[in-house]
Amino acid sequence: MLFLLLGRSALAGKTRSEDTGLSQADLDTVMEEVPKGALALSASAVLLLLCGWFFVYFFIFVPRGTVG
């Protein structure tokens, strides 16, 4: 977690100038993989949200009885 705060790790070491030199070939290469990771990440987030919702529903809401 510390590297997120200080940003001194090897991973974060690349500089801004390299970003602007983004080549179409590099972009095409990574686009072969994208958005597999994004799909995995967002789908897990939505799944967790659904689980959370049903947890509240079944374990908190329903036991507290009916109102209407």
Partner: peptide, 30 residues
């Protein structure tokens, strides 16, 4: 890929929607 994702979103949202309708009609929680 966005449409595929939107369908996942649609299913998730529909599940909650269905549970809410069931609660209203069957459990009489309104």
């Amino acid at each position: 890929s966005e449409v595929r994702w939107a369908m996942i979103v649609g299913v998730a949202v529909a599940v909650i929607f269905a549970a809410v309708i069931y609660t209203g009609i069957e459990l009489h929680v309104n």
